[in-house]
C-alpha cells in the first residue's frame, strides 16, 4: 500500500433541505487501500460514497479525486467518473442490452475504444467474474448474484482507479451473497482500491484495511478490523456490532 491518496475528503458537509446528512467528514483513501464503511441505516454512508463520483453534491468542504476537486462547475466530471467505478445495490444494469454490450458500452462510448478491443476486454472481465457463458443473455435472464457480478465486470471494463460499492449484497438472496463477496475479495487480492458500504462483517474482517463506522452523518470511529471488532471504543459502535453480530 502506497501513501498516494486517491480520494481526499476534507471537512465535507451536506444538507438535504434542513436535514444535515454529512457533518464535517474527513477521510483519505490511499491507493490500494480497502475501506469498509458501516453504520445504521440513514447514517449517511451511501450519501458519502455517492459524493465521491458526484452523484450527490456536497455543500461544504472539499473532495479531491485523483487530484481533481469535485464541485458544481467542473468541466471534466466525465473523466473523473470514468475513473471511479461504482456498483449499486440494485445492480442498475442496462436491461435493453446484452450482458456483453453492458460491459462494452462504457469503454466504447466514453473512452472511444474500438468495438473489437472493447469486446475483448469485456470477455476478459466476464471471465474474471466467472460468467463468460452468459455474455449474450439479457440481464433479466440472470440471477441476482450473476447480475451483480456483471455490474462489477461492467465497472472493471472502464479500468477504474478505485471501485465504490454501495451495499452490493443487500438486495441479494443469502445464497448469492457469497458469490459476489468472493468476486470482491478476488478484486481486493489483486490490489484494487475499494470503498465498500456493506453490512457483511465477515467480509470487512477478512478484506478491509480500515473499517469506518458512521452514525448520524458523522464518522464516529475508524480503525483496523482487529481494533474495530476487538475493541470498539464508542458505545454506539458496541451497540451496532452487538445488533449485527447477534445472529
Amino acid at each position: 500500500m502506497s501513501t498516494e491518496a486517491i480520494i481526499e475528503v476534507r471537512a465535507v458537509s451536506k444538507w438535504y433541505g434542513q436535514f444535515h446528512a454529512l457533518k464535517n467528514i474527513n477521510l483519505t483513501v490511499h491507493k490500494g487501500e480497502r475501506i469498509v464503511i458501516c453504520g445504521p441505516s440513514g447514517s449517511g454512508k451511501s450519501t458519502l460514497i455517492r459524493c465521491f463520483n458526484r452523484l450527490e453534491a456536497h455543500q461544504q468542504g472539499e473532495i479531491v479525486v485523483n487530484g481533481v476537486a469535485l464541485h458544481g462547475r467542473m468541466s471534466n466530471v466525465a473523466a473523473v467518473r470514468s475513473n471511479v467505478g461504482m456498483v449499486f445495490q440494485h445492480f442498475n444494469l442496462f436491461p435493453h442490452m446484452t450482458v456483453l454490450m453492458n460491459c462494452m458500452a462504457g469503454p466504447m462510448w466514453v473512452k472511444g475504444v474500438s468495438a473489437v478491443e472493447a469486446r475483448q476486454t469485456a470477455l476478459q472481465f466476464l471471465e474474471r467474474v466467472r460468467i463468460p457463458e452468459q455474455a449474450n443473455k439479457f440481464p433479466v435472464q440472470l440471477s441476482g448474484g450473476q447480475q451483480q457480478r456483471v455490474a462489477i465486470a461492467r465497472s472493471l471494463c472502464m479500468k477504474p482507479d478505485v471501485m465504490l460499492f454501495d451495499e452490493p449484497t443487500s438486495a441479494l438472496d443469502p445464497e448469492m451473497v457469497s458469490e459476489v463477496l468472493e468476486t470482491m475479495t478476488g478484486l481486493a487480492r489483486d490490489g484494487m482500491t475499494m470503498v465498500c458500504v456493506t453490512h457483511e462483517m465477515g467480509f470487512a474482517r477478512a478484506v478491509a484495511d480500515r473499517v469506518i463506522f458512521m452514525d448520524a452523518g458523522q464518522i464516529l470511529e475508524e480503525g483496523t478490523p482487529d481494533e474495530f471488532f476487538g475493541n470498539p471504543r464508542h458505545n454506539r459502535t458496541k451497540l451496532f456490532l452487538s445488533q449485527i453480530l447477534k445472529h
Binding site: 452523484l55 467518473r81 470514468s82 444494469l93 436491461p95
Partner: peptide, 24 residues
C-alpha cells in the same frame, strides 16, 4: 438507477438519453 449507472460511467446527458433512456 439507470441515470445513476450511466452517470457513474461518465456518460453525458445526450449519450444517456439516446442510448440508455430513450431505448428503454
Amino acid at each position: 438507477g439507470q441515470w445513476e449507472a450511466s452517470r457513474s460511467m461518465g456518460f453525458g446527458f445526450a449519450l444517456t438519453m439516446r442510448r440508455i433512456i430513450l431505448p428503454q
